[in-house]
Amino acid sequence: MDFPFELLVNAIVAGLLLGGFYAAVTAGVSISFGMLDIVNIAHPAFIILGSYIAYIVNISFGVDPIIVSVVMLPAFYLLGTTIYQIYYLSFEKRGQESLRGLAFFFGLLFVTEVMLILVFGVDYRYVEAGYIGPSLHLGNIDFPLRMLVPCLVALVVFGLLQLFVTRTFTGRAILAVSQDQLALQLMAADPIRIKRIAFGISIATASLAGALLVIIQPVEPSVGREYIGRVFAICVLGGLGSLPGSLVAAMLLGVMESITATFYGPSWAPAVAFGFLLLTLAFRPAGLFGR
């Protein structure tokens, strides 16, 4: 039997599309964990929250999930700034962020998940939109629109974020805040305010990522847990705080997972990300592109 070349190419393409989506999921953690040093392990729970909001509005009014999520951005931003304010007052200010901060976010993850279970149950929910069924064909390669649209949206979001952090004053201040808070104060920027804005943006991306998630796959409350390992694996692999690095790492992970799922069966796919994370932490904690 000769090597199933066509299968491999399709798996790689599917992996790249999946990777684009993973990049959108990781963007928030790249900001909070990578740039602000806030280990927000509850991020996937907010993504699932985004998915459910997109789902409710989509089912009741037939609005496109992506449009819903864009409308919800300010609400998620406010949620993020509120959480940061609590986090700052209770942990950062007292210098207890390491142990108790982690426990705090773990509790948030858990509470959000259980609340969603209590309200919606554990049934899988899915949305309806025009682009969910059909796919584009390019020769023998399939581009399912269900994957292509989230990937393109994710790339746009990533581009905008990258422009924001490199070209605007606030964005540069976000990059600077983790390096030297005092220097930032000398530039007449309040580090706490900058961090609050950055954390708000980080949670806001969860709204978009949630809508993309519910387009790609049916969602139930505990799906988020699978993404904890993925987002942190991507974040560490890409080098903390580097948005282009995370994008490349996300694509890499997507391709690896897709090939594993195609050739060994989908039940092995979750272990890929985590195995990757463990290996990266053990041998190259600075990430592929770190110094």
Partner: peptide, 15 residues
Amino acid sequence: RGAFFAIATLALAVV
């Protein structure tokens, strides 16, 4: 750093 250990333990459970 401590945070990496915490994340890795989560990863261990899923693996």
